[in-house]
């Protein structure tokens, strides 16, 4: 199973992973054209800064025992047994936000504009060349690695 593994020491806080994520979810856009000012522009990964620890990249871990899935009553969140990735089906979502409250890493959030759905990493739909954020990281602070359960 593939996971995004973080090497915090390498992160420079450039936010290129943010822009890559937003672009990957704005159809037909690229780094030149992605609209960062759109009300629908949402990143699924976050970089926080801590005065002691430096930059903290916060990415969905697609947990082995995902609290978001366990707390989802409508079945909108499911862990794919083959890929191990936690996938979100917007059509089933009741917008109760139990997943948002239960995520131990604070990585899930309601969408800003409509507050009717959850914004969550989809591992770029398992694209062959990997998630957009990983490709966009100039420091290789995030990498896709094969992990076993």
């Amino acid at each position: 199973m593939k996971r995004i593994i973080i090497d915090r020491e390498k992160c420079d806080g450039c936010l290129n992973c943010n822009i890559a994520c937003i672009s990957a979810h704005e159809e037909g856009s690229n780094f030149y054209t992605v609209n960062m000012l759109s009300p629908d522009a949402e990143t699924r990964n976050f970089i926080k800064f801590d005065a002691q620890k430096g930059y903290l990249p916060i990415f969905c871990r697609h947990c082995d025992e995902p609290e978001c899935v366990l707390s989802c009553m409508s079945g909108a969140l499911e862990k794919d047994p083959l890929t191990g990735h936690v996938q979100y089906d917007e059509s089933k979502c009741a917008a109760c936000y139990m997943c948002v409250m239960n995520c131990p890493y604070g990585v899930l959030k309601p969408d800003k504009r409509t507050r009717t759905k959850v914004i969550k990493c989809d591992f770029c739909d398992d694209k062959v060349d990997g998630p957009s954020c990983v490709k966009a990281c100039p420091k290789k602070a995030i990498e896709v690695k094969e992990v076993s359960l």
Binding site: N16, F31, V34, P138
Partner: peptide, 8 residues
């Protein structure tokens, strides 16, 4: 790998 903010 290019910086998206720089490109824009």
């Amino acid at each position: 790998v290019k910086c998206g903010f720089g490109l824009q």
